[in-house]
């Protein structure tokens, strides 16, 4: 069963075997406002835990999206290029950013569970 983990910077990673699907949370898209551009990494790129993986831009500002864990980018969501607003409409679903092969599954334990993340956001 897929499990989703969260960073303090509002990225999620939904884990399925040794692959994770990465995006930003509903809280993050609300904070950003209307997303107008997403810059995705090259497939094959190696990213460190906490390393810059993508850029998401709203009307007013650009924000960096960080890799929740270390890994290799195996797929990116090319649909976001023509429809960046999908990130606002369905951040946990069709608005995903990239899929990565997870190098060190032990790093997942350092991330928040859904309950922990919900508590964290409630306290912001």
């Amino acid at each position: 069963m897929a499990e989703t983990r969260y960073t303090r910077d509002h990225e999620y990673i939904r884990v399925d075997g040794d692959t994770g699907t990465v995006g930003i949370t509903d809280y993050a898209q609300q904070q950003l406002g209307d997303v107008v551009f997403v810059e995705l990494p090259q497939v094959g790129k190696s990213v460190a835990k906490g390393g810059e993986a993508a850029v998401v831009e709203s009307v007013k500002a650009a924000s960096e999206v960080y890799a929740p864990v270390a890994g290799e980018v195996v797929e990116v969501n090319g649909d976001l290029e023509g429809a960046p607003g999908t990130v606002n409409e369905d951040p946990k679903g069709r608005g995903w950013f990239m899929k990565m092969r997870i190098t060190d599954p032990a790093q997942l334990a350092e991330l928040m569970t859904e309950d922990q993340y919900n508590d964290y956001v409630a306290g912001l």
Binding site: D9, H10, E11, I24, A28, Q31, L32, G33, V56, S58, K60, A61, A62, S63, E64, V65, Y66
Partner: peptide
């Protein structure tokens, strides 16, 4: 994600 900063 970095905190979105309002440029202006």
């Amino acid at each position: 994600m970095t905190e979105p900063s309002d440029a202006n």
